[in-house]
């Protein structure tokens, strides 16, 4: 293979809200991931213990089926191992990177299942569940989870509804608009404003 370069032009500046998290002097997950990128299986065990809870949690939240969720969680963790050499710290935190993989994989599973069953099925046929109607028994990082759940309270009810349908429901913004019967532009605005609030709130909380 040709010459491999891992250098990036420059570290990109994160937005203010994200910086607070990024600039914590220690990023244990990031350190683990960098070791994993060098093929360190012991480091991977540590990484697994650090992220398996949120990974499985979000997969379970999106898919809801426990057996399928375990399967996807396993796929995600193996994918994290495989792709670790491609992790680029300039594009976000290590945990964020892992959880992006997890969420996308879960959503992909939902959408391909939908595609293979009946694409004509209106999305509204699925329940638009509230995200926190069931509190999972096995909360791993209980305190942090609690803190994050509280931070979701900064969202207005309308923002929260859209953000949760998108993230926990696995719906596209078009589907969210359809479910809620509101214009697409309104959905985009609620998603964006919601994430901005959440991001800025995290800066304070972290």
């Amino acid at each position: 293979m040709g010459e491999v370069s891992f250098l990036r032009p420059e570290r990109r500046r994160a937005r203010p809200g994200a910086e607070a998290a990024d600039e914590r002097p220690e990023d244990p997950v990031g350190d683990l991931l960098r070791r994993v990128a060098r093929g360190d299986e012991r480091a991977f065990e540590g990484l697994y213990d650090a992220v398996a809870g949120p990974v499985h949690g979000v997969v379970l939240r999106v898919l809801r089926d426990p057996a399928q969720s375990e399967e996807v969680t396993q796929e995600v963790m193996v994918e994290v191992w495989k792709q670790a050499p491609r992790y680029d710290a300039a594009r976000g935190s290590a945990r964020g990177w892992v959880l992006t993989i997890a969420h996308r994989r879960a959503v992909d599973r939902v959408r391909s299942a939908q595609a293979s069953t009946d694409r004509e099925d209106k999305v509204a046929a699925r329940d638009a569940d509230r995200a926190f109607d069931v509190v999972t028994e096995e909360v791993e990082h209980r305190l942090e989870a609690e803190q994050v759940r509280r931070s979701l309270d900064v969202l207005t009810a309308l923002q929260r509804e859209s953000v949760e349908l998108a993230y926990y429901g696995g719906y596209t913004h078009r589907q969210v608009a359809e479910i809620l019967g509101i214009p697409l532009g309104t959905v985009k605005t609620r998603l964006r404003d919601g994430l901005i609030r959440l991001r800025d709130e995290m800066g304070v909380v972290a």
Binding site: A52, E144, L198
Partner: peptide, 22 residues
């Protein structure tokens, strides 16, 4: 990309909020 990184971080916290041990 910087803006997206902030959003991704915010979104990933929503995963933390529903953490559940496998």
């Amino acid at each position: 990309a910087g803006e997206a990184a902030g959003y991704a971080e915010a979104a990933s916290r929503m995963a933390v909020a529903v953490a559940a041990s496998p």
